[in-house]
């Protein structure tokens, strides 16, 4: 990306920090240039993790703390960050981040560690409407973690494993607790891990897709958040909604942090 800003603008930077339930993300932005980004485990002390994210961004960019003009915190841990200049929910940040990447995006599907959201935005990247999952782990990254563990495969391998499936199983439970026992009994009955993984993805996609339809899908659609790394799941959600997701130039997990940095830049 090219800076279209004023001369010397790359000297200053704006930071967005997104402390989610499972991962902490940071993005440093200067004009139109994404200087650097980082993803760490959230850990048990969101405040300390936030500090680590900030330090990592400074190391990567080779800049000093005084070069940072504004920091916006977002995510569940946003209230635990004493050093931020302002906070905003991850809903608005995902809208802002997606808009920064592609101005045609009007719908964002975000699936993170503990919730899933569908956000509708206007032509300026403002949030128009949103819907979130029920307050349990069904339809979240946490559910994926539990499923992967029960299948004894790495979370990052779920997508490729499911891709090998010939005949996906019918998985009925979306509850993170009951899905685990369902996976175990499917394994015990001789089903292949690939077919189970594909079945889990299918019921997951139906759930998220149905939620998205409840508020309506509009314009270009982006799939973001940690779970968006799972390509097989993304393909199934697209099939359910009869859309194609826009290609993102960055890691989908850092879109919320990017949005926070965009808002930081807009705040001065």
């Amino acid at each position: 990306m090219q800076a279209k800003g004023l001369q010397g603008e790359t000297e200053v930077m704006f930071v967005g920090i997104d402390i989610g339930s499972r991962a902490a993300k940071g993005v440093a932005l200067s004009g139109d240039i994404l200087l650097c980004s980082t993803v760490l485990d959230s850990g048990v002390h969101p405040g300390k993790t936030g500090q680590l994210v900030l330090e990592d961004l400074l190391t990567q960019s080779g800049k000093k703390k005084s070069d940072i003009k504004f920091i916006v915190g977002t995510g569940y841990g946003r209230v635990s960050l004493p050093f931020v200049d302002s906070t905003l929910t991850e809903l608005s940040c995902h809208a802002a981040g997606a808009h920064f990447l592609n101005e045609d995006i009007r719908t964002v599907i975000d699936i993170g560690g503990q919730d899933s959201k569908v956000i509708r935005l206007d032509e300026d990247g403002n949030m128009l409407d949103f819907i979130m999952n029920d307050k349990c782990a069904a339809g979240t990254g946490r559910f994926m973690e539990v499923a992967a563990k029960a299948l004894e495969i790495a979370l990052g391998d779920l997508s490729s494993t499911a891709g090998k499936s010939v005949c996906p199983c019918e998985v009925t439970s979306m509850c993170a607790v009951f899905a685990e026992s369902e996976v175990i009994s499917l394994l015990a009955s001789g089903q292949k891990p690939s077919d189970i993984a594909a079945g889990l993805h299918r019921s997951f996609a139906r759930r998220v897709g149905a939620m998205a339809k409840r508020i309506g899908i509009n314009g270009e659609v982006a799939f973001v958040g940690g779970v968006a790394k799972n390509e097989d799941l993304g393909r199934l959600i697209c099939e359910y909604l009869e859309v194609n997701f826009v290609r993102l130039s960055i890691d989908p997990q850092i879109v919320g942090a990017l949005g926070a940095a965009v808002v930081a830049q807009r705040s001065v």
């Binding site: 929910t89 991850e90 809903l91 608005s92 919730d115 949030m127 409407d129 949103f130 979130m132």
Partner: peptide, 15 residues
């Protein structure tokens, strides 16, 4: 969880 929804809603109203 409610706090995120409600704060997000306030941001939506502001927008």
């Amino acid at each position: 969880q409610l706090k995120v929804r409600i704060e997000g809603f306030m941001e939506q109203i502001e927008a």
